[in-house]
Structure formats: structure tokens, C-alpha cells
């Protein structure tokens, strides 16, 4: 710090700002409230209020003739959901694919995370770290669109198969396409927490296991997997929640019969203008995630985030 800009010596300065500083110092509650007023005001008055509105409006209905929202309590939206022949199917498809994507990402990520944490030298590890995170920041739409180009009839995949003398694959616009694309897009979210969990395992544990006669796979199953589990669960929160709440990928790479919960919600907001029904359906992923987070916390996943 340059000397000429330093505080003058001698008596403490007197100024309104300084009195304020002293007042805040003596009463920490004042300082904390001043700092929190903005962010908490925003999050509570806008975000929590919005969530509350969502929850409440799920119990409202829409007048069929005027299209106005009727503010009287009803369970009709939920009844309509449960009794319908379509919506339970859509909910199950969404949850099922979210599970499939989560399992796939665990399988894809685990060996990679293990390699990064225990085999790669520091330089290679840093490079891999950057390479795993980079796609995450390179535009979600771009990456979904890339798969549309790959899986389409005249796309890269079929060109490759024809070159090998194999028949064309018809994956584009199916549930298979959604499964591949979701697994691709959310993979980095799974790699990071598993890596963090494996890196924390002390090498001596593995040596001890081997000294006691545990061969490679036995050590993996009995020592590494249990200790890496919180990381796996933490990653699965992301892959599961993100898939559950998506509706862009189903539109872009799914077929006509591959609606997700999000697609129904969106079309009820934008086109049918039935916000109460959309809100009711949106509570399904909310409840599923609440249960998932509850279980995850019990399994210790939050220590890995």
C-alpha cells in the first residue's frame, strides 16, 4: 500500500461514515440485516413467493368459458391427472428415463473418475478435469442439436454404419435418442462428485485391503464402492433432477410420442392457458425430488457437494 494513501496518524478520525461503521461493529445484527436485506428480499419475495403461488394455484381451476382462473379450492386437477390414461404414462416415462440416465452416467463416469483420481499424473489430471467441465459450459442447445445431426437419417452415425457395411440405425426421434442425449449432457455432473469421493479415500485403505488378501475386484467391491457411494448419490441428484425437469431435449430429439412432464406443463401454460393444471403436474417432479433428496441426505450425499 502506498504510504501517501495510508491513514493519517494521530487521533481517530471523526466522520458520519465512521460513526456508522462503529455502530455496525457494535451491533452485528444490524450489519447482517443490511447485507441480507437485498438477497433475501429477492429470493423470498420473488422466488419463494413464486413457488408458493405454484403450489397454491395447483388447487385452483380454470373457467371453461372465460378462461379466467377461478380462485376456489379444488382437487380436480389432481383427479384429472390420476384418472387420465395419458398423464400417469408420461410421468412414468419421465421418471423411468431419469433413472436410466442416472444409472448410465454412473457406469460411464466411475472408471473415468477413478482414473482421474488414482492413476493420472497431476498434469493429465488437471487437463482431464478441464475437459470434463468444458462441455458443460459450451451451450446446452448446441450439444443437443449436435446429437440431432448425429442421429438423423443421413447423419454421422448412419454414415459410419454404412461405411462399416452395417444397416442404418433408426435411433433418431425415439426414447433411445433421449436416453443417449440426456446421458451425454449430464455426464460431467456425475464425474465431478465421484472423483471427489474417490480422491478422498486414503491409499492406505486400499493397501490394507490388499495386504489382507483382497484381490483387485474384491477391494473395489468391499472398500472403494462403499466409500465412493456418497459421491455417486450426489452426482445422481444432478442427473436425476436435471432430466426430470427437462423438456427441450424431448422436443428436439424425442419422437412424437415421447412427451415428458415438462412438455405437458409447458403446453398447458403457453397454448392451453391452463396454469392450475400445469401447476398440479409440476408438483409431481417436485415431490419426487423431495423424496430423492431426503433419501440422499440419509446416505450422506450432501457432504460431497
Amino acid at each position: 500500500m502506498a504510504l501517501d494513501k495510508a491513514l493519517p496518524l494521530g487521533e481517530p478520525q471523526q466522520s458520519p461514515l465512521r460513526s456508522l461503521a462503529i455502530a455496525v461493529w457494535r451491533r452485528p445484527a444490524l450489519g447482517a440485516s443490511a447485507l441480507l436485506a437485498g438477497p433475501m428480499g429477492w429470493l423470498v419475495l420473488i422466488y419463494l413467493a413464486a413457488l408458493a403461488t405454484l403450489f397454491i394455484s395447483a388447487f385452483w381451476s380454470v373457467n371453461d368459458f372465460t378462461g379466467e382462473i377461478v380462485h376456489s379450492w379444488t382437487l380436480d386437477n389432481f383427479r384429472q391427472l390420476v384418472e387420465s390414461s395419458v398423464y400417469p404414462h408420461i410421468a412414468l416415462r419421465t421418471i423411468g428415463i431419469a433413472f436410466a440416465v442416472t444409472l448410465t452416467d454412473i457406469v460411464l463416469a466411475f472408471p473415468l473418475a477413478y482414473f482421474m483420481a488414482r492413476i493420472a499424473r497431476p498434469k493429465l489430471r488437471a487437463a482431464l478435469f478441464a475437459m470434463v467441465l468444458l462441455p458443460l459450459w459450451s451451450s446446452y442447445l448446441a450439444r443437443v442439436y449436435a446429437w440431432r445431426l448425429i442421429l438423423s437419417h443421413d447423419g454421422v452415425l448412419n454414415w459410419f454404419l454404412l461405411e462399416l457395411g452395417l444397416p442404418r440405425a433408426h435411433i433418431g426421434y425415439t426414447n433411445w435418442a433421449m436416453w443417449i442425449v440426456f446421458s451425454y449432457i449430464w455426464l460431467p455432473f456425475m464425474v465431478m462428485p465421484i472423483y471427489a469421493a474417490i480422491e478422498r479415500i486414503p491409499g492406505s485403505f486400499l493397501e490394507a485391503s490388499q495386504d489382507l488378501g483382497g484381490r483387485g475386484l474384491r477391494t473395489l467391491r468391499k472398500v472403494i464402492l462403499p466409500l465412493a457411494m456418497p459421491g455417486v448419490i450426489a452426482g445422481s441428484i444432478f442427473t436425476f433432477s436435471l432430466t426430470l425437469g427437462d423438456y427441450i431435449t424431448p422436443v428436439l430429439v424425442g419422437g412424437p410420442g415421447s412427451n415428458f412432464i415438462g412438455n405437458v406443463v409447458f403446453s398447458n401454460v403457453g397454448i392451453a392457458n391452463n396454469i392450475p393444471f400445469a401447476a398440479a403436474f409440476a408438483t409431481v417432479p417436485l415431490v419426487v425430488m423431495a423424496i430423492y433428496l431426503f433419501i440422499a441426505r440419509r446416505l450422506g450425499a450432501f457432504e460431497m457437494m
Binding site: 413464486a50 382462473i69 425437469g245 396454469i275 400445469a278 409440476a282
Partner: peptide, 18 residues
């Protein structure tokens, strides 16, 4: 960002309508 995207979007949308 922890909640599924449609929840945040839908919540804000109904908030603005109401």
C-alpha cells in the same frame, strides 16, 4: 438451480400471471 428447471419456470410464470 437445484430444483428441476420446469419448476422454477412454472413457478415464476404462475407468479407473474397471478
Amino acid at each position: 438451480i437445484a430444483l428441476p428447471g420446469i419448476i422454477t419456470g412454472m413457478a415464476l410464470s404462475s407468479f407473474f400471471v397471478v
